[in-house]
Write a protein that binds this DNA or RNA. Structure first.
Length: 270
DNA sequence: AGAACCACCTGGCAGC
DNA sequence: TGCTGCCAGGTGGTTC
């Protein structure tokens, strides 16, 4: 589910309801997420005030007193703000009860998500190997060009490598490569600077458009207010095999790379 | 160092 | 209708 636009949509929705609030209680119904939810999470969080919610790649960091609550939504996670009387549903694994009465609730059917306590985000194994943010100044065609030299893997895999650039998953890699007219299977190390400059621009444009649409909802993503995104209606190629390419009208091709579905227009992308 | 593959989970859907 | 197999937005770990 969630790539950068979905995680950011979640973050922006949480901000007004959560920042400045104190955590009154924590309920962990199912600790078996990607890693076990720490047993002492409630002890750590109870009584602390959330001073900020930040995003690093696809991770959310709630700044709380002496440390940080780290949340990853995995493939199927949602964080929503619900009223205290909202009935608990299947896969509602973790609740943060706020002093406002609101509950921040994590629902994650596949349990690939994570809820962890992080003392020092600058020196945390999950965070310190991450590459640049797509909206940072350091992210540009020159950066991609430099980072890709010597890489023979397909450029699509290169874009999805979080040590290179964070936040781009399978959907937005496919869409940005179409927008930049680059073949997903092309070896990353064999792409010229000029094409990477266009790609860097198209990545930003694609992510911004998705963010403006509240992200993509294929099955189960909802923002913090429970509303789905609608960027899936604007896909040029993702999931559209056999349908006409929006640029040239020829059918969109489907293939697989590194176990992930890949979509491209054989006529527009080189 | 880089790349290929597996693992972790549930649920929805196509096909029989 | 039910069963089986396959697929899905991620990513750390292992192996070559």
């Amino acid at each position: 589910m969630p790539e950068l636009p979905e995680v950011e949509t979640t973050r922006l929705g949480l901000l007004p309801r959560v920042v400045g609030r104190s955590i009154r209680d924590v309920v962990v119904r199912e600790p078996r997420l990607r890693w076990p939810v720490p047993r002492d999470l409630a002890t750590r969080l109870r009584g602390t005030r959330v001073s900020a919610i930040r995003r690093r790649g696809k991770y959310l960091l709630f700044d709380c007193g002496t440390g940080h609550l780290l949340v990853h939504l995995g493939m199927s996670g949602n964080l929503t703000v619900v009223p205290p009387d909202r009935p608990v549903r299947r896969h509602d694994h973790v609740d943060l009860a706020l002093d406002s009465g609101d509950i921040v609730r994590l629902n994650d059917p596949r349990r690939f998500g994570a809820v962890l306590w992080v003392r020092d985000p600058a020196h945390h194994a999950l965070l310190d190997g991450l590459g640049v943010e797509p909206f940072e100044e350091a992210f540009d065609g020159e950066y991609l060009h430099r980072a890709s030299r010597g890489r023979r893997a397909p450029v699509k895999q290169f874009l999805m490598d979080s040590r290179v650039v964070t936040g781009i998953g399978n959907i937005y890699a496919n869409e940005a490569l179409f927008a930049a007219r680059i073949l997903p299977s092309r070896a990353a190390g064999r792409i010229a600077l000029g094409r990477f400059e266009r790609l860097a621009r198209e990545i930003r444009v694609t992510l911004e458009r998705a963010l403006a649409a509240g992200g993509s909802t294929l099955r189960d993503f909802v923002g913090s207010d429970g509303a789905p995104g609608h960027f899936q209606l604007e896909y040029a190629v993702y999931g559209r095999q056999g349908e006409p390419c929006p640029a040239c009208g020829r059918p969109v091709s489907a293939s697989r790379h590194a176990g992930r579905s890949t979509f491209h227009c054989a006529s527009c992308q080189r």
